[in-house]
């Protein structure tokens, strides 16, 4: 076991990939909290696909991989916005039209113009292909993402929870939406080398979905999904090294396995909880009984009764 862990660390390419993987895992994990809560998994899927088009066109023009990827994601975001403004169309149709078209352009360019692009590596991620630039890009995007999260967390949560009320209450919701789109695009671009364009979408959904089953607080969900993203990246990279499979699939499958286990356990505990709940009065029944009493004491009695019914400790009081 020790050798299984330590042996890969003797290779510089693996330590580089591990560093980039931890950064990408943390970013995609944190992002997945908001992707899941905003029900926007399709945007990650779409932007990731458009990256292939940008990379292919960029390399055909002799540009760096990241230049093409950034251009493609920015162009996609602008076109999606423009198409979605057409009467009778919604964002999902716009994403499908724009990003699939850019993906198709990439496939066509690869067929017509000889490039040095390793298509399989771009599609599925490549452990061997991670270089210092990739680590630097992931680090820069990670730092910017962390800073924005620290500064905008409350406004981002308010906008995600209730956009219209957040706007009326002074949150610049338009700026929040734009910031979220830019963060998503940046994380997608920074994750291309490690995860591959076809698997980024899963990485920005699975940790958040798993964390959603484990916690009922958005703050804790953010922490848990970030840790899950890092854990899946680290374990996935080791599996990629030892089993000689591309890094993207191994990371995504690790995350998917964690989700499956959590979903099964969560399903079982929910069923057990429901059975137990059927044998005792519901919280609303207890509340109704308790609030027939007058005043402040009524609420306290209700809470104590509900806590007891839930098997929970008494609710904290100021």
């Amino acid at each position: 076991m020790t050798e299984w862990v330590l042996l890969p660390l003797d290779y510089a390419f693996f330590t580089r990939a591990l560093l980039a993987g931890v950064l990408v895992g943390a970013m995609s994990g944190a992002l997945s909290t908001f992707v899941v809560l905003r029900r926007m998994s399709y945007i990650g899927h779409g932007l990731a696909h458009s990256v292939l088009g940008g990379v292919a066109v960029g390399l055909a023009l002799g540009l760096d991989l990241y230049v093409g990827a950034i251009a493609a994601t920015v162009l996609s975001a602008l076109l999606i916005d423009a198409v979605a403004r057409q009467r009778g169309l919604h964002a999902d149709a716009a994403i499908g039209i724009v990003t699939t078209s850019i993906f198709a352009i990439g496939v066509a360019v690869l067929a017509l113009v000889p490039t040095r692009l390793n298509v399989e590596a771009v599609l599925f991620g490549n452990l061997l292909g991670v270089n210092r630039t990739d680590v630097a890009v992931a680090g820069a995007v990670g730092l910017a993402f962390a800073a924005l999260l620290l500064l905008l967390f409350k406004s981002l949560v308010f906008t995600t929870f209730d956009t219209e009320v957040a706007r009326v209450h002074g949150v610049r919701t338009g700026a929040m939406e734009l910031t979220f789109s830019l963060i998503t695009a940046a994380v997608v671009v920074a994750s291309v080398r490690v995860l591959g364009v076809l698997l980024i979408a899963a990485a920005v959904v699975i940790p958040g979905a798993t964390a959603r089953l484990l916690t009922r607080s958005v703050g804790r969900m953010l922490v848990v999904s970030t840790l899950l993203g890092v854990a899946a990246a680290v374990l996935g990279l080791y599996l990629s090294f030892h089993l000689d499979v591309p890094s993207g699939p191994s990371i995504v499958l690790t995350g998917a396995l964690a989700f499956t286990v959590v979903a099964l356990v969560s399903g079982i505990t929910t069923r057990l909880g429901l059975r137990a709940a059927r044998r005792r009065p519901s919280p609303s029944e207890l509340q109704a009984r308790a609030t027939t009493q007058d005043g402040d004491q009524a609420g306290r009695t209700a809470t104590a009764a509900m806590d007891a019914a839930d098997g929970a400790p008494p609710s904290p009081r100021r």
Binding site: K154, D162, E164, H169, V171, S217, V218, M221
Partner: peptide
């Protein structure tokens, strides 16, 4: 100005407790 939305438009399963709901009301300040 405080705004109270239609209940039908609220995501009631959002992972947030009642105190946090209230605290978000002044998130901009």
């Amino acid at each position: 100005v405080g705004y109270v939305p239609q209940l039908d438009n609220v995501e009631r399963e959002f992972p947030i407790d009642v105190l946090e709901v209230v605290l978000l009301g002044d998130a901009a300040s």
